[in-house]
Deep mutational scan, measured.
Amino acid sequence: QVLVIRIKIPNSGAVDWTVHSGPQLLFRDVLDVIGQVLPEATTTAFEYEDEDGDRITVRSDEEMKAMLSYYYSTVMEQQVNGQLIEPLQIFPRAC
């Protein structure tokens, strides 16, 4: 299952990153890619938005798994409803 992660860049749009092994993705892998997209920032975590629009911070593989399972459940709903699949949007955080 292909996963598209949209890395939101403060004040300048976003970069889409296509991942072919989504469920095996590790927290460190995401930080590495964010580091390539935002080389001047030191990113130690990132956030995503849940169904209520609240930002949830991801700082570990466990939290990463929770984010992915949340995302895959929303994708299934979108597929069932015949909607366009939205990329998983993440917001890098420099701490």
Rank of each mutant, 00 (worst) to 15 (best):
T43S: 12
P39T: 04
C95M: 06
I34A: 00
M64T: 14
G22V: 11
K65F: 05
P10H: 05
V75N: 12
E49H: 01
F91I: 06
M64L: 13
M64S: 01
G22R: 08
A94T: 09
I5Q: 03
R59A: 11
V4R: 15
L25A: 05
D50A: 14
D50S: 10
Y70T: 07
L3K: 02
D54T: 14
P92C: 02
T18E: 08
P10G: 06
M76V: 09
L25T: 15
M67E: 00
D61N: 07
P23R: 09
A45Y: 07
D16T: 06
D32L: 05
Q36L: 05
H20A: 11
N11Y: 05
Y70V: 08
Y70N: 11
L88R: 02
Q1K: 15
L25H: 01
V37L: 13
A41K: 13
I34F: 08
E63N: 06
R55D: 01
I7T: 02
V15Y: 15
Y72S: 12
E77T: 13
R59G: 14
P92D: 01
A45P: 01
L31W: 00
Q79H: 10
T57V: 13
Y48I: 05
T44Q: 15
K65E: 08
G22T: 05
W17Q: 04
V33G: 06
N81E: 09
I56Q: 10
I90Y: 00
G13D: 15
G53L: 03
Q79E: 13
Q89C: 14
E63W: 00
V33N: 03
D54I: 14
L31I: 13
F27M: 05
L25N: 01
S69T: 12
K8S: 07
E86F: 04
D52R: 13
A66Y: 09
D54G: 13
P10N: 08
Q78V: 07
F46V: 00
R55F: 06
I9D: 05
Y70S: 12
L38Q: 10
R6Y: 03
V58E: 03
R55S: 02
D32N: 13
L31R: 01
M76W: 09
Y48Q: 04
A45Q: 10
I56K: 07
R28W: 04
Y48W: 09
N11T: 09
M76D: 10
F27K: 05
W17D: 00
F46H: 00
D54F: 10
I90C: 04
V37P: 00
L84N: 13
Q83Y: 08
L38I: 08
E62A: 12
R6S: 03
D54A: 13
L3H: 05
T18P: 08
Y70F: 15
F91S: 03
V4T: 15
T42H: 13
T57G: 04
L88C: 05
K8A: 08
I85S: 08
I85Q: 15
F27W: 03
G22A: 12
V33E: 09
R28V: 07
E62T: 09
T44M: 12
A94N: 15
Q89E: 14
Q1D: 10
V30M: 14
E40T: 15
